[in-house]
Simulated assay, not measured.
Amino acid sequence: MIFDDTQCQLGEGPLWHPEREQLFWFDILGHRLHTKGKHWQFDTYVSAAGWVDRDTLLIASARALHRFDITTGEHVELCPLEADNKVTRSNDGRADPQGGFWIGTMGIEAEEGAGAIYRYYKGELRQLYAPITISNAICFAPDGKTAYFTDTPTQQIMRVELDADGWPRDESQLHIDLTGTDFRPDGAVVDTEGNLWNAQWGAARVAGYAPDGSFIKAYDFPAQQTSCPAFGGPDRNTLYCTSAAVGLDGPDEGKTFAVTTDITGQKEYRVIL
């Protein structure tokens, strides 16, 4: 079940690169991008990525979106992201079916309402939702018509209908209500059947929900602070999950896990710059 035994302080943003057949993930607090057997060190928080081509990632840092060369480790800034706001950093993010990249921000100390959710699409960065305290669960239905997201402290995963270019067309609506439970929604991903798989912080699990929001089942992991899932592997039926060691001292906290499932994940979408 342990895919990589590196203990991340705040493991996040797993991305299965479909052309390289390779998993990338981040340690936000460690300022690192990881892949198995290797990491790249940054000078600030990095949290999420999308793939542009075989050798290029779009990476979100605390202050900008960057074009990152996997082969050389070099990166150049594409556009600023709350560059003048020293309170915030990037957090959860994912590419959408139309080739856009959604990225959330939050306060470095989780300051209430300090963050927002943005979309970068063909060179334009536009704010979609604010205020947000802890942006998470950004993911998309396979038909490209629905996006999901959460502000973790609300314990509510929202859905919003998208237009043909991937921009929200209406107000967001409640999709999954976890209020009154011990489940705090963190990162999420949607499979090919439209089921949403959500890592739940503090609950040591990734839980699945049908398109109507009803609970399906959960996969348990040996780390309390499960943070974000991703589907990958040759058949896209491996469920990866990052976790966070911050504040904990268990032997498997902060490690990255993998379990074979009977689910097929969507291929991660290419970001169009």
Rank of each mutant, 00 (worst) to 15 (best):
W201D: 09
T154E: 09
R32W: 04
L65Q: 02
L174V: 15
L57N: 10
L65C: 08
I2V: 15
K38H: 15
A114C: 07
H75M: 08
G30Y: 07
D5H: 03
H66I: 04
P97I: 05
F24A: 09
F257G: 03
P222H: 04
R32D: 03
A218E: 12
I108A: 07
L273Q: 09
W102Y: 15
A207W: 00
Y240C: 05
L248F: 12
D5F: 10
W25M: 14
T146A: 07
V76M: 01
T146L: 05
V246H: 08
D69K: 04
L23G: 01
K255H: 10
T56F: 01
M1K: 03
V46E: 03
F231R: 05
P97F: 06
D5E: 11
L178I: 07
A218F: 05
G250N: 13
A48H: 09
I134F: 03
A114D: 03
C139S: 14
Q156F: 10
G213T: 06
H75W: 03
K217W: 00
V46M: 08
E19P: 01
V271K: 01
V46C: 06
H17F: 13
K217C: 11
T35H: 04
L239C: 06
L125N: 12
D262I: 06
D252I: 08
G50R: 07
D53L: 09
L78Q: 01
H66L: 14
E253L: 09
K145W: 06
Y240T: 09
T261S: 03
M158I: 07
S172T: 02
R94C: 02
I263Q: 02
S172K: 09
K145T: 15
G73H: 08
K36E: 15
L23F: 13
E253C: 11
I138L: 06
A116R: 13
G202I: 15
P18W: 02
T192N: 00
T105R: 00
D235S: 07
E12S: 08
D53G: 03
Y118N: 06
L162M: 12
E19M: 08
G202P: 10
A188G: 09
K36M: 14
P131C: 11
G187A: 13
A210Y: 05
T150M: 10
R89P: 06
P234T: 14
Y148I: 12
P168A: 08
F257K: 01
I70Y: 10
D191K: 02
G247V: 15
F231I: 11
I176S: 06
A203H: 00
G208Q: 06
Q155I: 11
D191I: 00
Q9D: 04
A62P: 01
L273D: 13
L29N: 10
V206F: 03
F257V: 05
A207C: 14
G180E: 08
G107S: 11
G104L: 07
G113Q: 02
D163F: 10
E124D: 05
G113V: 02
Q224V: 15
D143H: 06
L78N: 02
D212K: 00
T71M: 03
F26W: 10
E268C: 15
S214W: 04
A207R: 06
H31W: 08
A114H: 05
P97G: 12
